[in-house]
């Protein structure tokens, strides 16, 4: 809304014209209504069902939980069967707690590692000659278009004991026994950093590129050496990009399934995999739902922060 400066009122324009438009009424209702109903039906309602099932009991039936709401006359008694047993079960079992903590720790660590790699990359891109920038930007985005699964898969061949990385180290004589990297948290870090690098690089690049270069010149002119100018001027101004990037990596990483499953082995049990196992292997849909609800409850705060920040930026 910066365009109008608000004071001329142009910022708050328009709606009257729309609302008065009689002929646009039906069309307008369709444009709003169809996607709205779709999202309610296929995003909101499913999530409420997850919540409902998290309060149910497991049963040997199809669907494998009770109560179900078939005959309206039994609804009241069905409602009385709801309980918090699944949540108590999760809280009581160290396995789940460990999985949550491990997920958050791994997500936080890999977010930090991604930042450490993405920031210099974004900085290098922003400082590159402007003729290069479009190309560099495309080079960062290009791998993002190729399959996520393929990118994770590529690392297996590199990291496994007889893989290319170990072969290289053996060849160079740096080690005399292959390192065990695959099926450890290190492999998960590599996988997450690799897969989410563009999500961190792009917002940081955007905030660095937008920055007025004369600010740095002004700092230098006022006697600030380059490193100090970076730390006092560039870095604070790029913070919105850093924050957005961190959340864009942290949130999905915390619920990540494919990377820990393929690179982390069976011993590192993150929460995304726990949901998967409860659902597909144990067929305990109520517990799987409860685990999912708790994960969403944990992620609600960072999601809300990210959304507010995006709105302010947009």
């Amino acid at each position: 809304m910066a365009r109008s400066g608000g004071a001329t009122g142009a910022g708050a324009r328009g709606p009257q014209a729309e609302e008065r438009a009689g002929s646009g009424g039906l069309f307008r209702r369709i444009v709003i209504g169809v996607p709205f109903l779709w999202l309610v039906l296929l995003f909101l309602v499913p999530f409420l069902i997850v919540f409902k099932i998290s309060l149910s009991q497991v049963a040997v039936a199809m669907p494998p939980y009770i109560p179900t709401f078939g005959d309206p006359s039994t609804w009241w008694s069905a409602l009385q069967q709801f309980s918090l047993d699944n949540y108590a079960w999760i809280a009581g079992d160290q396995l789940y707690l460990d999985a949550y903590i491990l997920s958050l720790v791994i997500a936080a660590t890999s977010t930090l590692l991604t930042l450490l790699i993405a920031y210099p990359l974004a900085y290098g891109m922003a400082k590159a000659p402007s003729a290069w920038r479009t190309t560099l930007l495309m080079l960062v985005i290009l791998p993002f278009w190729t399959s996520f699964l393929i990118r994770v898969y590529a690392w297996i061949a590199i990291l496994k004991p007889e893989g290319l990385f170990n072969q290289l180290l053996l060849f160079l004589g740096l080690i005399d026994q292959p390192l065990v990297i695959l099926n450890t948290p290190v492999a998960i870090f590599i996988g997450i950093v690799y897969s989410y690098l563009p999500f961190m690089t792009l917002p940081i690049y955007a905030s660095l590129e937008r920055m007025d270069h004369s600010l740095i010149e002004a700092a230098a002119d006022l006697g600030s050496p380059p490193l100090k100018a970076f730390w006092k001027i560039t870095f604070p101004l790029s913070l919105p990009g850093v924050v957005a990037g961190c959340f864009l990596v942290f949130i999905p990483a915390a619920g990540e399934f494919v990377i820990p499953d393929l690179l982390g082995g069976s011993r590192t049990l993150m929460i995304g995999k726990t949901v998967w196992l409860e659902f597909f292997t144990n067929r305990d849909w109520p517990v799987a739902s409860a685990v999912a609800v708790v994960l969403v409850a944990i992620l609600v705060v960072p999601i809300a922060i990210l959304q507010r920040q995006q709105e302010r930026e947009g």
């Binding site: 709003i32 996607p35 709205f36 999202l39 309610v40 296929l42 995003f43 909101l44 309602v45 499913p46 999530f47 069902i49 997850v50 099932i53 669907p63 959340f247 864009l248 949130i251 999905p252 915390a254 619920g255 990540e256 399934f257 995304g272 949901v275 998967w276 659902f279 849909w285 799987a288 739902s289 999912a292 994960l295 969403v296 992620l299 999601i303 990210l306 959304q307 995006q310």
Partner: peptide
Amino acid sequence: MTGMIYAPLVMPEVITGLSLLLFFVA
């Protein structure tokens, strides 16, 4: 609506998948 547009972007896929499946079963 804004929330329903933005939330799925960062929602862990496992949760989206699970909720949709449970919906189809229901």
